[in-house]
Each structure stands twice: as structure tokens, then as C-alpha cells.
């Protein structure tokens, strides 16, 4: 039995609850016990708050970490951005005593103190390193037969690798192997390691979508059936904005469904599509899958 304080952040619970539902449903089957973090808020966002004031960003992140310290539990993140913000802040404050002192002075105003007693984890690590491929394989009911997946890791689960320490930042393989264990194929495609450019949106939406279009084109050329990813920011970009992105390619319209890893795994474990929240996707994926019964 593994126990974690579940850090949800903002986008997953308040925009893409299907990612949360799929993660909870699948983790449950591996005896991962999730504890709710009362009063947790924004992680600080890898782009916005640190750009405004790095100390404020550290304080916002540390405020969340303090909640889990009081629960005496390590934090499990579903979102790459939250994982990045919290882990970077946690490690920075653990290693820089003077900065920790300054941040604790800020936190004293809100009745908190950062102690540095817990660790920050991402769903990818917990699935790959703790639960492991063998145990996942045992739980798969109907493996996929012929499903070509474009795997997209997302920047904030990999970089900076010396701090996050999840996988090789240039040639990661954890998510590819987790996809393969469901019977699906992780295809090779150009620009696989490229950023989704969601973070550019707040400053310049046109440039953000233009850059995503380059990646989308490669996914199409590699004849992927779907994109499998981890991060809700990437999900927003590739699912919610997919039509706008493809329009920029000035090609014939096409659509490529987007799934979080937990959703893909959920289907392989025969969890009904409705429970995994596929009805809330903008790009519909009913037709593409070999499991019509799950979509009934």
C-alpha cells in the first residue's frame, strides 16, 4: 500500500476533470491510497508567478508543500507543471538555507513554516518506478492490438533533469514503455521531444499555435492513431485547440484524439469510457479504438 497527498493544481480539477477521474480509477487498482490536500491552490505555475517574482513563486509553492508536511505524506502530482514547480521549490529550499529563511519569513504571515521533510513525485515515476511494468501488465484485461501512439512527455516532467531526476531528458523511455505494456505501439516521429508551447499562449497565442502546428504535422505524417501525454497544459493545446492548430497547416482537416496515460491504461483495464471522461474531449475518439464495448 502506498500513501500520497494528492496535489491536483488548477487545470486538472477545474478544466480537465477527466484526467483526474482516470488517474484515481487506475491508481486505485494498484493500491495507491490518495489523501486530499485541503486548502491547496495553484502550484505557482512554471511560467507566470516565477516571471513576476521568484520569491513569491517559492512562497506559493512552499505554502502547498507545508500542507503535505503537516499530513506527513509525500506529494503525488498528476500535472507536469505542478510537479516542476513543487519539486524545484522543494529542492531549492532544502538546499539553500538562507533562501529558506527568507521564504519562511513570508510564510510566517500566513501561519506556515517550510521544514523540508517530504518529497515530490510525479504520476510517471510512481507508475514506472514504484508500481512497475510487471504489476501493470497483470492488471491489463484486453491489450490493444493495433494502436499507434505518439508519445508526448511534456517539458516539465523531464527538465531540468538534474533536479527532477525522472528520466533521460534527451531519450526518455518510461512513458514509451508504459504505453507498450498496454499492447499499443509507441511510434517514432519527428519533433517527439518538442515542447507543446502552451506556456507561450499567455504572451502570444498566434505564435504558440503556430509552433504547435509544426509538431501536429509530424504526428499526422507518422500516421499516429492518437497522442498520449501526461500534462494538462499539453492536453489543452492538443485537444482543445486542435482545430485551430490544424487550420494553420492549410491542409485538409483531420483529427487526432488526445488521451492522458491514465485514460489509455484505463481502457486497457476495461474501465468504461464514460468513467474515464472521454465524453468531455473536444476531439472525439470513439471510432479509432478497438474496444467498442467500452464506448457503449
Amino acid at each position: 500500500m502506498m500513501d500520497y497527498a494528492l496535489f491536483l493544481g488548477c487545470i486538472i480539477p477545474y478544466r480537465l476533470p477527466q484526467m483526474e477521474a482516470a488517474a484515481r480509477k487506475t491508481l486505485q487498482k494498484f493500491d495507491v491510497n490518495l489523501h486530499e490536500m485541503q486548502g491547496a491552490g495553484c502550484c505557482s505555475d512554471p511560467a507566470a508567478t516565477p516571471a513576476l517574482d521568484y520569491k513569491a513563486a517559492l512562497a506559493v509553492a512552499a505554502n502547498n508543500i507545508c500542507i503535505a508536511e503537516e499530513m506527513e505524506l509525500n506529494i503525488l502530482n498528476l500535472c507536469n507543471g505542478c510537479f516542476h514547480s513543487l519539486k524545484l521549490s522543494n529542492e531549492t529550499l532544502k538546499n539553500k538555507p538562507r533562501l529558506k529563511e527568507q521564504i519562511n519569513e513570508i510564510l510566517a504571515h500566513v501561519g506556515k513554516e517550510f521544514k523540508g521533510t517530504i518529497n515530490i513525485r510525479h504520476l510517471l515515476e510512481v507508475m514506472y518506478k514504484d508500481i512497475g511494468l510487471e504489476r501493470i501488465k497483470d492488471k491489463i484485461k484486453t491489450p490493444f492490438n493495433d494502436l499507434k501512439v505518439s508519445v508526448h512527455y511534456g517539458c516539465h516532467v523531464l527538465r531540468p533533469s538534474n533536479v527532477l531526476n525522472v528520466d533521460d531528458p534527451l531519450r526518455p523511455e518510461s512513458l514509451d514503455r508504459l504505453v507498450k505494456v498496454t499492447g499499443a505501439e509507441s511510434i517514432k516521429y519527428m519533433q517527439k521531444m518538442n515542447c507543446c508551447n502552451y506556456c507561450v499562449r499567455v504572451v502570444d497565442k498566434d505564435i504558440s499555435l503556430k509552433l504547435s502546428a509544426g509538431k501536429m504535422k509530424q504526428v499526422k505524417q507518422a500516421q499516429a492513431d492518437c497522442i498520449v501525454l501526461l500534462c494538462p497544459g499539453c492536453f489543452m493545446q492538443f485537444d482543445l485547440s486542435q482545430k485551430e492548430i490544424i487550420r494553420l497547416l492549410e491542409e485538409e482537416m483531420f483529427s487526432i484524439p488526445v488521451l492522458s496515460y491514465s485514460q489509455l491504461l484505463g481502457l486497457a483495464m476495461d474501465i468504461p469510457a464514460k468513467e474515464l471522461g472521454f465524453q468531455f474531449h473536444r476531439v472525439k475518439l470513439k471510432k479509432l479504438f478497438e474496444k467498442p464495448a467500452l464506448f457503449a
Binding site: 486548502g39 471522461g277 468531455f280
Partner: peptide
């Protein structure tokens, strides 16, 4: 949607905490 997916109710964060951090850091 959360309700339909059977997800638990969430307690929103204490807004004053974030406002205080913004105030103290200028």
C-alpha cells in the same frame, strides 16, 4: 462534470493566503 465522474468535492484554497503572499512580496 466532476459530479458526473464521481469525483470528490474540492475545498477551494484560502484566497487570503495568496493575497497575503502577494502583499508581503510587493
Amino acid at each position: 462534470r466532476r459530479e458526473k465522474l464521481g469525483l470528490p468535492d474540492l475545498t477551494p484554497p484560502a484566497a487570503e493566503t495568496f493575497q497575503k503572499i502577494a502583499e508581503v512580496t510587493g
